[in-house]
Simulated scan of single mutants.
Amino acid sequence: MKKSDFYFDLPERLIAQHPLEQRDASRLLVLDRADGSVTHRHFSDLLEYLNPGDCLVMNNSRVIPARLMGHAVGRTTPIEVLLLTDHGDGLWECLTRPGKKTREGVELTFGDGLLTATVESVNPKDGNRFIRFHYDGIFLETLDKLGTMPLPPYIKEKLDDPERYQTVYSKTPGSAAAPTAGLHFTKELLARIQEKGVKLAFVTLHVGLGTFRPVKEEEITDHIMHSEWYTMDADTAKLINDTRAAGGKIWAVGTTATRTLETIAAEDGSVRPQSGWTDIFIYPGYRFKVVDHLVTNFHLPESTLMMLISAFATREQVMNAYEQAVQEEYRFFSFGDSMLLY
């Protein structure tokens, strides 16, 4: 299967530059996988599709202020560092710009020396830097003082309230990008969902910037997927297993929750408490083991996320739905509208 099979033409004006004032006022395109039909609703209407006994699984990872501006010790040229993956003991995998200023051994400083770092190595495959940070106190508190929110490159406008790039249930810091399918939920909507008898479950997957990296290979099977850290606790695993045993449906909120669930699930769809790194690449032909319904945003052309949802429905159904979304002028990407693959 070719990368070009997942291309669609998207007018730039449809790329949402800011969130709506009310989170759940976004539109919801419902794709019925049984017959390929498309219905146009609003996100708050999601409640009508959920049934008592179902389980809604969400990614509670929280975006950290992962973009740092500093410079090499003894130099004045600004250097941008974007934190991607925490490898422990102060060592992070990072993107840097300009890359030629961050060769191995370079010493960096941020915030007048409040935070310093050493470039320990360069990944020859993708050019990412492994940088060890030196600081006093708690690293995340230092980041809160010096870092800024790492919005995707297609968002050109300034975000006035950083909390709008967090889900209302975000809890565990570690992501370089938001699990954006969850941005549409309000605490009030989640309460109404629970009142209907739907269970809420949470997993954690720390989203890396590999999510936004384009697929360069024309043959999609040649693409190397990025790795992301995930965890599921015992209470969540029991909730999911009990739901399935009672005949309820598992709803994944976003591709990150989907990838976590499908990484953990056994062939029979059961799950168990587990933590680790996943580089699962889901594309057409994949057989889903545990996810029954998927809530997601509208994705970039030729992206791995387009490939995932085209595996959950069919490529033809998804491309037809996207064509209608463009015609109806849905808002696309992180701050855009939502889609239910039912």
Rank of each mutant, 00 (worst) to 15 (best):
Val203Ala: 06
Asn297Ala: 05
His42Glu: 05
Ser227His: 15
Ala257Ile: 02
Thr204Pro: 09
His299Pro: 04
Pro173Cys: 10
Tyr165Ile: 12
Lys3Trp: 02
Gly174Leu: 11
Gln22Phe: 06
Val253Met: 08
Glu328Gln: 15
Asp9Met: 08
Thr260Trp: 09
Gly53His: 13
His40Gln: 13
Val63His: 00
Ser37His: 05
Leu146Ser: 14
Gln274Ala: 13
Tyr283Asp: 05
Glu157Trp: 03
Tyr7Asp: 09
Val122Tyr: 02
Gln17Asn: 02
Val291Ala: 01
Pro98Thr: 02
Val198Met: 06
Gln194Glu: 14
Ile220Pro: 00
Ile282Met: 10
Pro65Ser: 07
Pro98Asn: 01
Ala16Ser: 04
Asp337Arg: 00
Val318Pro: 04
Arg41Lys: 07
Phe6Gln: 10
Gln166Asn: 03
Leu205Pro: 08
Ala66Phe: 04
Glu218Gly: 05
Glu188Cys: 09
Thr278Tyr: 03
His134Thr: 02
Glu12Ala: 11
Leu340Ile: 07
Asp136Met: 01
Ala252Arg: 04
Thr148Asp: 14
Tyr330His: 06
Glu218Ile: 07
Cys55Ser: 14
Val203Thr: 12
His134Trp: 02
Phe110Asn: 14
Ile224Lys: 15
Met225Asn: 00
Lys196Arg: 11
Val30Thr: 13
Ile264Ala: 02
Gly269Val: 03
Gln324Gly: 13
Pro150Lys: 15
Glu104Ile: 07
Ala34Cys: 09
